[in-house]
Write a protein that binds this DNA or RNA. Structure first.
Lengths: 135, 135
DNA sequence: CAGTATCCTCATTGATACTG
DNA sequence: CAGTATCAATGAGGATACTG
């Protein structure tokens, strides 16, 4: 790639270079950013982790994800569904019955998220040790 | 699994069960949640990715992470530093010179974050294909 | 049960100005 | 250069009520 030739040039060229080299995440306009926001959102992470263990219904998820409101859960599920990370199966019975499960793509992201989460959990003591001040 | 035996019981028992089984992330009060919030925050992710490539100065990071404000960058750097994920080296010169780099622990989280980000970037077209509606 | 609709609050973020 | 301080705006999120 001759991309490196332009590395000394203007900021515009620089950011273009970055975009070509390493994807567009660092560029503000990139659609990756919204996907990233969905999966790394507070509730997105936890929902993905729950669904990685298997299909679950709305209120089951709500019980497992401690602290999420109906509204936020619905919103989170919609984002993740529209990104193609999960399937929503609605059974036309009364009372309503809706099941959520990961798509193959969903399982791949969830695996990454889960690896990250598990790293944090098992390193929590190391982290708390290192902590100086607030937050 | 005798876990299911308690599934009919109180919410308190339920969340206790979850905590014992799979760590505390799903419990609202867990300190893991704040760490997770820091590293998965919009700017946290991008800063970690930049620093994974090497030590960088404040304004260098600001240039690379497209769209971040001074305030948000400073705040992000502080959270990550106080979690022990990065080192701040300040040189007592004028004008000021401050370098940020990852700690060994920081490199570990950043590796996870980066893996996730790269997955998203390389699967973007698959994701955009799957997308039905808004967001 | 699985949501939607509405209203409301407070935290996050951004813009701007200032400083060691 | 590397921030801090201040203020204003946006949006995340919660509480409540209602519905198919």
């Amino acid at each position: 790639m001759k991309v490196n030739d332009s590395i000394e040039k203007s900021d515009e060229l620089m950011s273009l270079t970055l975009r070509l080299q390493r994807g567009e995440l660092l560029a503000a306009e990139c659609p990756s950013r919204s996907v990233l926001k969905h999966v790394t959102s507070q509730w997105g992470v936890l929902v993905l982790m729950v669904l990685l263990k298997g299909t679950s219904r709305f209120s089951q998820i709500r019980k497992k994800v401690n602290g999420v409101s109906e509204k936020m859960l619905a919103q989170t599920l919609q984002s993740l569904e529209s990104d193609g990370f999960l399937n929503r199966r609605s059974f036309p019975v009364v009372p309503p019955h809706v099941e959520y499960s990961l798509t193959p793509m969903g399982e791949e992201v969830a695996a990454h998220i889960s690896a990250l989460a598990e790293w944090i959990e098992s390193n929590l003591s190391r982290i708390m040790d290192a902590r100086n001040n607030s937050n």
